[in-house]
Simulated scan of single mutants.
Amino acid sequence: MGSLGKAELEAMIDEATVDAYGEAEELTGLFTVIEENLAVPFSTMVLGVEVTVRGVDLSRDGRIVALCSRGPVRQEIGILDLPMPTPAPDGAEWIEAYRYWSG
């Protein structure tokens, strides 16, 4: 990740937040495009352990989180803290846009 330029990221953010009024609605817009475009499930490594990302959600504290599992264990991991596999799944560029938006 990190392959998109500032202008591309800003255009993506504008696309995701076009009808948003305020930060909460911008977050919802970004969550929506990530949810619609991120190809799940995919596998990645978290703390040296392979996990499966099954989807994304909005947490109660206002973060976009990845819904991860390993066997019967389930855990939410902040999408900004989630290491992306190489190659990244389709739609991962929206996570990059969210990262840029969140500063």
Rank of each mutant, 00 (worst) to 15 (best):
S3M: 07
L9M: 10
L9Y: 10
E10K: 13
A16D: 07
T17H: 02
V18D: 11
D19N: 15
Y21P: 00
G22Y: 08
E23N: 08
E23K: 14
A24R: 15
E25S: 03
E26T: 01
E26S: 05
L27V: 10
L27K: 08
T28Q: 14
G29D: 05
G29Y: 03
L30R: 06
F31E: 01
F31I: 06
T32G: 04
T32S: 06
V33Q: 10
I34T: 12
E35R: 14
E35G: 00
E36D: 15
E36F: 04
E36Q: 07
E36G: 00
A39K: 12
A39I: 05
V40T: 15
P41G: 11
F42C: 07
T44S: 09
T44M: 08
V46R: 09
V49K: 15
E50W: 02
V51P: 02
V51G: 00
V51E: 00
V53H: 02
V53E: 02
V53Q: 01
R54Q: 15
R54K: 12
G55T: 04
G55E: 08
V56I: 08
D57P: 00
D57H: 06
G62K: 04
G62N: 01
V65T: 07
A66V: 03
A66G: 09
L67Y: 00
R70Q: 13
R70F: 00
G71I: 02
G71M: 01
P72G: 04
V73L: 06
R74Q: 12
R74M: 05
Q75V: 11
E76L: 08
E76D: 14
E76Q: 14
G78K: 10
I79Q: 04
I79C: 08
L80C: 09
L80P: 00
P83N: 11
M84R: 14
P85H: 02
P85G: 03
T86E: 12
T86Y: 10
P87D: 09
P87C: 09
P87T: 11
P87M: 09
P87F: 11
A88G: 07
D90R: 15
G91L: 03
A92Y: 02
W94G: 01
W94E: 02
I95N: 10
E96S: 07
E96D: 15
A97I: 03
Y100V: 03
S102W: 02
